[in-house]
Design a protein around this nucleic acid. Sequence first.
DNA 1: ATTTACCCTATAGAATTAGTAGATTAATAA
DNA 2: TTATTAATCTACTAATTCTATAGGGTAAAT
Lengths: 136, 136
Amino acid sequence: MLSKKTKYGLKALTFLASQKVKQPVQIAEIAKQENISQKFLESILLSLRKTGFLGSKKGKGGGYYLIKEPKEIFMTDVMRVLEGPIAMVPCVSLNFYEQCDDCPDEDSCAVHMLMLKVRDANLKVYRNTSLADLTG
Amino acid sequence: MLSKKTKYGLKALTFLASQKVKQPVQIAEIAKQENISQKFLESILLSLRKTGFLGSKKGKGGGYYLIKEPKEIFMTDVMRVLEGPIAMVPCVSLNFYEQCDDCPDEDSCAVHMLMLKVRDANLKVYRNTSLADLTG
DNA sequence: ATTTACCCTATAGAATTAGTAGATTAATAA
DNA sequence: TTATTAATCTACTAATTCTATAGGGTAAAT
């Protein structure tokens, strides 16, 4: 299952991407428009800022805004930040590889084999999809 | 993340598929060979039996065995039983469709759009992979 | 009588999804 | 300049659910 964190994060990003005027948007505004718990969204936007997707401005007239162009924001990066590793098992992860402690041989492991295919399929989708592609 | 339930279930299935002699294999045997908590495996095998993948035999010489040929067992079905719906959100699920309560319009929803692609990609992999393909 | 699957319950730990309270910063009005 | 307001930021807490496992007893086959 996709976590609500990821769902909300994606919605917030696309909301910001579809802004005509390039001014900061307040958390409350995004939360209201997208039906998201404001406090939860707050922590999500914060993590998106800390990972370089968003910028923020405090005080009156403040809010969040995209740092890069939607075309330049790819789902591979977004998903890794919001949802975690794209691979479903660490032993097929590109960025978070870990050996299985219970499995003696990766090459003959059925789970490894299957999840490798799944990872490749998902990577292909995420790499070929930018935020711009999602703003209809 | 792939649950251990699914991981163990897949390992058990491939273990059974790679048996030369077509005789029931005991839970304890599978658990030992595949480094799986026996009690946990017990419940997994039970659910695989109830969903038509395995047969069982009680008493001496008993155990679990595959009902169908490995070639005829596809990952779509296995994954749905072990891991749940293949879709990451209910609004793109073929077998477990549910409307989102927070999202007014599916067609313009970024999450919907992205997850549709992901579902298709995963379905393709699962449909094209049988248990026989994993026993390499 | 023994061996095995079957069934039910409980539980510790982790992750998820929030909510509460306050601190900090920046713009603006006095 | 000062006070006020509007916003992000930080930290703590909590309810709920999910995960993984263990224990003990029952039923059936040999």
